[in-house]
Design a protein around this nucleic acid. Structure first.
Length: 804
RNA sequence: GCCGUUGUGGCGGAAUUGGCAGACGCGCUGGACUCAAAAUCCAGUUCCUUCACGGGAGUGUGGGUUCGACCCCCACCGACGGCACCA
């Protein structure tokens, strides 16, 4: 009887569900392992063929760890708030919660057909009030610590997205919204903001100890963008004002030839001379109408205007003209710079265009371009003769001594804009009272539930649709004081910033999770997901986790010890899968036609987990053929155990078996699933050549296969005589002594080229081996006319004869 | 422009610490089985040259270190990803 994937997969999925096979063990005397997948947004499209790749990887490790005696926490949930559902709801006139429910049910069903060993009793859903009660609770703790505040700030306003909404910096790509590609403008607006910058140093420094891909760490470092330099204070001529600038090159202060303020800088109006004010106003108007895209990418040409005022260089008293220019950003540093055109590319361009002084203070440059490298300082008073590092340190000392500046660290990272003008998100639990006070919704009244609304169209004035929920909106306290609820909701990143903690104790109504459970499960041992979350989700989750650590809620300062990014699965034409290209593969179709085991096996075998690889229908069917081959190796035509599987062991498979156990175990541990599977194939090839198959080896082999192909694994285990699930059968072990050979093949080289091979006893003496090598016929031929200069002997492997 | 990742047969990929390049799979070729085909099983398959034995070349390119380099060093080229007027 051939392998019938539909019957067998259904049979074991039912068995696992009925017996709660994958319920998380809680016997704390056992070691733990927490294997986590990035939970998906349950879109209407259903599962993509890329999802099962990461899911299968954590599933294989989870299954192996269970067999190795670990308590395994391997949960799944849904990141279900978000814009696509809200847009779809408006289009169809339906309610977002209903759509979400359907999509989640579909996703769950699809995941179950893949045979993933999740503990479904621990499923979390960010839109469940019992869940977002704790998202709101965390927000309230942030508020109490002064880390959540309201501010009128320049935000990324996308008037064409959802009837007008604000997006985070991270959601702006090339001056357009990440979703939909709408233009983004910078306008001031009242927003909730989380002070992630308070954690900037720790977010950079703690990357050090994490087992994460270097590229992700680097992206986070770039995103946080720490730069170390100095603040320098410039007096303004004939005025009380001081201009504070930030520079990473205080050593070039003697070369400063002008000062630039960003057009939005607060001092501009005070210092500008009357005859320049009209021109300044015109310039500002011109800039305000530009989107970010036009201000940066589209316009590399420098623009600016003179204010009429002068600053005094603190180190030499020189008079420097003060300009405004949009190449200086209000949002970075102090929004003001000292310009050193001789040693800064941007200042150089500006100075060339407006004919400003260019004064070199470091040797080594030309007149053609700014010289930004190291060199000996000149024209720099007490810095003359020093190199860059020494000059920087010396100048900072001088500034501090004379009270003209100090060492300063700046970050590119901005505080996290935490409000969205949308309906489908967690309500921010704040009430604005008529007397001007704002208070939190008391903790014992959480969750503050999202009200049901017939119509969730945007209010049109930039406020969230919740502004129209009149009944929900109005509150009155015990003294009759009237107030209005905050109408902004949280961004999608809120719920995903802590969900991994909730799996630990998903139904706890009194806390995020019980402290003893948090202590037991600690941080996530293995976290697998897509690279697209490199800075967004992973940075926010680290920030919240560190905050919770400071509060004493969690025992670790980092949430994810080991992180792996699975690569993308591309279409058969090596392009990203997309409907418009018509190269999308639907996992449901594959499961139907080939079975979930084949899909799992193929996705693991196609290449390294981290690498992006093109889909191949041929490769897929090859995987199915191999599983059939395995089946035929063990099961005869009548569905019974093959007659050549016996308890006798003639030893022919011993070495191959022990090698296979060793390699597969190590490779699963190291997430090298493709090479683990190739070793399973090697064993099967060997087994087909053997006359008798020792039962013990076949059982071990099935155990090694089961994490990859769990349904087939269970079925074969049963045919081999197993009476219960294979999930907890102790993992096979190997015997190192079975791997050593008493005869080895030694490669013979002449001048580094392989000329012959001989088989010798493994413990042969070195000089005897060399004698044998030189006596070899092929070697004799090669060295006949040469003088042997040297013989290199790598024990048990290789002899290299150097001759000329 | 800067940073990171990466480059190996017709294709996906493998190669522990610097020691037989191409494991395993796909594809292709041949054989067995079959009336025949499919499926299956077995064998072969880097390129050039040779009837063959054999010889030569070969891991993006050019150089270097070494008895020996896919692996280490220098320079360059291509692909992918990120950042980008961040002072």
């Amino acid at each position: 009887m051939s392998y019938q994937h539909k019957d067998i997969e259904q049979k074991w999925q039912d068995f696992w569900a009925k017996n709660a096979t994958f319920k998380t063990g809680e016997d704390t005397s056992k070691p733990k392992f927490y294997a986590l997948d990035m939970f998906p947004f349950p879109s209407g499209q259903g599962l993509h063929v890329g999802h099962p790749e990461g899911y299968t990887a954590t599933d294989i490790v989870s299954r192996m760890k269970r067999s190795q005696g670990f308590n395994v926490l391997h949960p799944m949930g849904f990141d279900a708030f978000g814009l696509p559902t809200e847009q779809y709801a408006m289009k169809t006139g339906r309610f977002p919660a209903d759509i979400t429910k359907e999509n989640v049910a579909n996703f769950r069903k699809q995941m179950q057909t893949l045979g993933l060993s999740y503990d479904w009793d621990r499923e979390v859903n960010t839109t469940d009030p019992k869940y977002y009660k704790w998202t709101q609770w965390i927000f309230e703790q942030l508020y109490k610590k002064g880390l959540a505040y309201e501010d009128k700030i320049m935000v990324n306003w996308a008037p064409d997205l959802m009837g007008g909404t604000v997006v985070a910096n991270e959601e702006v790509i090339d001056g357009k919204t990440e979703r939909g590609g709408f233009p983004v403008y910078r306008v001031p607006m009242r927003q909730w903001v989380l002070k992630i910058t308070a954690y900037a140093d720790r977010l950079i420094d703690d990357l050090e100890g994490l087992d994460w891909p270097e590229s992700i760490k680097e992206q986070q470092r770039n995103w946080i963008g720490r730069s170390i330099g100095a603040s320098v204070f410039f007096d303004v001529e004939n005025a009380q004002d001081k201009i504070e600038v930030f520079t990473t090159r205080p050593d070039t202060l003697f070369g400063a030839s002008y000062v630039v303020l960003s057009p939005e800088h607060a001092l501009v109006d005070q210092i500008a001379t009357d005859d320049n004010k009209d021109a300044i106003e015109a310039y500002r108007k011109e800039i305000a109408s530009k989107s970010d895209l036009e201000r940066t990418d589209l316009n590399k040409d420098k623009s600016g205007i003179f204010t009429g005022a002068y600053a005094i260089n603190p180190v030499n008293g020189e008079k420097l003209p003060i300009w405004i220019a949009d190449y200086v950003l209000a949002s970075y540093g102090t929004g003001a710079i000292m310009a050193v055109p001789a040693h800064d590319t941007r200042d150089f361009e500006f100075a060339e265009k407006f004919d400003l002084t260019i004064k070199p203070v470091i040797e080594g440059g030309t007149n053609e371009e700014a010289y930004t490298g190291d060199g000996t300082h000149i024209n720099s008073g007490f810095l003359d003769g020093m190199d860059k590092a020494t000059a920087i340190a010396t100048m900072i000392d001088w500034l501090e001594e004379h009270d003209r500046g100090h060492k300063q660290v700046n970050f590119r990272l901005r505080d996290w804009i935490f409000s969205r003008q949308r309906y489908w998100g967690e309500p921010i639990p704040v009430i604005h009272w008529e007397d001007g006070e704002s208070t939190l919704v008391p903790e014992d009244q959480l969750p503050l539930e999202l009200p049901y609304m017939e119509d969730i169209k945007p209010s049109g004035n930039g406020e969230s649709p919740l502004a129209n929920a009149t009944e929900w909106l109005a509150v009155e306290d015990e003294n009759g004081r009237k107030g209005l609820r905050e109408t902004n909701t949280m961004p999608q990143w809120a719920g995903s910033s802590w969900y991994f903690l909730r799996y630990i104790d998903p139904t706890n109504d009194d806390a995020i999770a019980a402290p003893e459970k948090l202590n037991y499960w600690g941080n996530v041992d293995l976290y697998i997901g897509g690279q697209e979350h490199a800075v967004l989700h992973l940075l926010y989750a680290r920030f919240w986790h560190k905050f919770l650590y400071d509060l004493g809620v969690v025992p670790t300062s980092e949430p994810f010890q080991k992180l792996v990014n699975q690569g993308m699965i591309l279409g058969e034409n090596h392009e990203k899968m997309s409907k418009s290209k018509g190269n999308v593969v639907n996992p449901d179709d594959i499961v139907n036609e080939y079975g979930a085991d084949t899909l799992r096996m193929y996705e693991m075998f196609m290449g390294p987990l981290e690498q992006s690889i093109a889909w191949s229908e041929d490769g897929l069917s090859g995987s199915r053929r191999w599983l059939d081959r395995v089946w035929r190796m063990i099961v005869d035509e009548d569905g019974h155990l093959n007659a050549n599987i016996t308890t006798e062991n003639d030893g022919t498979l011993t070495k191959s078996y022990h090698q296979t156990v060793k390699k597969v175990t190590n490779d699963f541990e190291g997430l090298r699933f493709n090479t683990a599977i190739s070793q399973l194939m090697v064993f099967v090839n060997d087994a087909y050549k053997a006359e008798k198959l020792p039962l013990e080896y076949i059982k071990g082999f099935v155990q090694l296969l089961a994490p990859v192909a769990p349904h087939m694994g269970e079925e074969l285990w049963q045919i081999l005589g197993g009476t219960d699930t294979i999930a907890f059968v102790a993992w096979p072990t190997y015997d190192e002594s079975q791997l050593v050979e008493n005869e080895v093949e030694v490669v013979l080289q002449v001048n580094g080229k392989v000329r012959s091979k001989i088989t010798v006893a493994a413990d042969i003496a070195g000089d005897e081996l060399e004698k044998l090598a030189l006596a070899d016929e092929a070697i004799q031929k090669q060295v006949a006319d040469l003088t042997v200069r040297k013989v290199i002997n790598i024990k048990g492997k290789l002899i290299n004869i150097v001759a000329n």
